[in-house]
Amino acid sequence: MADTDTNTTMVADTPDDYGREGLPTGEHHQPTEAEEKARNKRNIAIALSVVGFVVLIYLTTFFRLAENLKGAAG
């Protein structure tokens, strides 16, 4: 655990303590090749989903507009 001196300043002893106190720990996570590959696939899937949803909204607007025009003409 972090020590507390008389001025209540947090002093971390271990990397875990630094993490708890919100201090930089010097740790980092180096993704493996498998992780990076999976992350790329997830990123592509998210991008495609967002684009797909935009297309769905675009098509909905298009068909709704066409319906309204047909109704107005008929």
């Binding site: 740790e27 180096q30 993704p31 493996t32 992780e35 999976a38 992350r39 696939k41 997830r42």
Partner: peptide, 19 residues
């Protein structure tokens, strides 16, 4: 991992390789 370690030395949690 610390700077001196590599992730390949450790078991990868399943969610990091989720498809």
């Amino acid at each position: 991992t610390t700077m001196s370690e590599t992730a390949t030395d450790q078991e990868i949690p399943a969610h990091l390789t989720a498809e």
